[in-house]
Amino acid sequence: MKVAVWDTYVTKKDGSTMHFDIVVPEEVTNKAMIHGYGRAYLRTKGQEGQPLTSKECSFCHMETLRSEWEAEIKQQGYIIIEMENCQ
Score class of each variant (00 low, 15 high):
residue 1 M to D: 01
residue 1 M to R: 08
residue 3 V to L: 14
residue 4 A to K: 13
residue 4 A to E: 12
residue 5 V to A: 07
residue 7 D to N: 04
residue 8 T to D: 05
residue 8 T to G: 02
residue 9 Y to V: 15
residue 14 D to L: 01
residue 18 M to G: 08
residue 19 H to R: 14
residue 20 F to Q: 03
residue 22 I to N: 08
residue 23 V to K: 10
residue 25 P to M: 07
residue 25 P to D: 02
residue 25 P to R: 05
residue 26 E to K: 09
residue 26 E to R: 05
residue 27 E to C: 05
residue 27 E to Q: 10
residue 27 E to I: 11
residue 29 T to Y: 08
residue 29 T to M: 02
residue 32 A to E: 06
residue 33 M to H: 01
residue 33 M to G: 00
residue 33 M to D: 01
residue 35 H to M: 06
residue 36 G to F: 00
residue 37 Y to P: 05
residue 38 G to E: 08
residue 40 A to Y: 08
residue 40 A to K: 15
residue 42 L to F: 00
residue 44 T to M: 10
residue 44 T to I: 07
residue 44 T to G: 14
residue 45 K to D: 04
residue 47 Q to R: 07
residue 48 E to N: 14
residue 49 G to N: 06
residue 49 G to D: 06
residue 50 Q to T: 02
residue 50 Q to C: 11
residue 52 L to C: 11
residue 52 L to P: 05
residue 52 L to W: 00
residue 53 T to C: 06
residue 55 K to C: 06
residue 55 K to E: 12
residue 57 C to Q: 11
residue 61 H to D: 13
residue 62 M to G: 04
residue 62 M to T: 13
residue 62 M to C: 01
residue 63 E to Q: 15
residue 63 E to V: 10
residue 64 T to I: 12
residue 68 E to I: 04
residue 68 E to H: 12
residue 71 A to L: 11
residue 71 A to F: 15
residue 72 E to V: 15
residue 72 E to Y: 14
residue 72 E to W: 14
residue 73 I to W: 09
residue 75 Q to F: 14
residue 76 Q to V: 11
residue 77 G to R: 02
residue 81 I to D: 06
residue 81 I to N: 01
residue 82 E to H: 00
residue 85 N to M: 05
residue 86 C to M: 08
